[in-house]
Computed example of a mutant assay.
Amino acid sequence: MIEAVIFDMDGLLIDSEPFWRTAEKEVFGNLGIDVTEEEATVTSRMTTREVTEYWYRRKPWEKKTLEEVEDAVIQRVGELIDHGGVIMPGVIGLLQRFKQSGCKIGLATNSPDCLIPKVLRKLAIEHYFDVTISSDFVARGKPSPDIYIKAAFELATIPSNCIVFEDSKSGVRAAVAAGMSVVVVNRQVDFNEAGFEIADVKIRTLNDFGDDHIVLLNNNKTGFEIRPTD
């Protein structure tokens, strides 16, 4: 039965992915590394540590540790969130719907733990979440299922009783590998691309999540029901 709903963060709740690209271009650029758009796309689903290690392997730098460089990227992203973070369409309405239905609500992100409260405060949605999990606290970030398995444990439910909202192939893979139902939300991608076909529901924005999707997910999960709107 459905007991919990878990949300990704970057690109799903907040339009923060441009911030990561800006921060990485600035920080790594200061180290003599030209971060192209193509390479930024490759690293966009990595953890901050994985991105730092990726660039260090390609073009090692001196004088700064990996930790210092990683921290500089995170600090810059935090500044950009504070000054320009914008909530994605449909977030508030969907959180309210699930909260009113009695679902536990979690957040699971590859972003550093220190950015989670910053984002939730900026969007004024921290009170909706029962649990927040960062890849800082698991052995492997997405597409490994570790973070979703941990989220289910923290929410005191089993993975098969969870629905995940994700915006990327790596996130979808992680949630499916954890044994959860998945709704993929992305305004820009072609859902016919390999990697998205394993999601249970595909929508363009959270505003598009409606009663028909609730019926579909309830048919897949018997027991607790997410109530359609009146």
Score class of each variant (00 low, 15 high):
D15M: 04
A124H: 15
G141M: 05
I74T: 10
L12M: 08
T109N: 06
V42C: 00
I87G: 06
V189H: 04
N219S: 14
I92W: 12
A151N: 01
D10K: 02
K221T: 09
I105T: 04
I87A: 09
T52K: 00
F224R: 11
K63T: 13
L155N: 04
G210I: 09
K25G: 02
V73N: 01
T43C: 14
I6E: 00
E53K: 12
T52A: 05
N161E: 13
R121L: 07
E3D: 12
V86L: 09
K64E: 12
E68H: 09
V182L: 04
S44R: 12
R140G: 00
F209L: 13
S144V: 03
T47K: 07
L13V: 01
E50N: 01
D34N: 15
E37C: 00
R49G: 02
D190N: 15
M1K: 11
F19C: 03
F129W: 08
R187G: 04
E26N: 10
L217V: 05
P60Y: 06
S144N: 12
T229R: 14
N110C: 12
T47E: 03
K221P: 00
C103L: 15
F98Q: 01
T157P: 06
L12H: 05
V73H: 01
L80K: 04
N186S: 12
F7G: 00
A156P: 01
G179S: 11
I116F: 06
K104Y: 12
E193K: 14
R21G: 13
V184C: 03
L66K: 11
G223M: 10
R45K: 11
V164Q: 07
I133L: 11
E3Q: 14
E67H: 08
K118V: 13
F224I: 06
A175E: 05
K169V: 11
R173N: 12
I74S: 01
E39N: 10
D34W: 08
V182R: 03
G171Y: 05
N30I: 01
V91S: 09
P18S: 08
A124G: 10
K25I: 02
V201N: 03
E70P: 00
C103G: 01
S101G: 14
N192P: 06
E26K: 12
E26V: 01
D230I: 08
P159H: 11
R97P: 00
N186M: 09
K221R: 15
F7W: 12
N30H: 13
H213C: 11
A199E: 04
S181L: 14
P145V: 05
R45V: 11
T47F: 07
K150Y: 07
T43G: 00
P145C: 07
V27W: 00
T41A: 11
D190M: 06
E37W: 10
E193Y: 10
G223K: 12
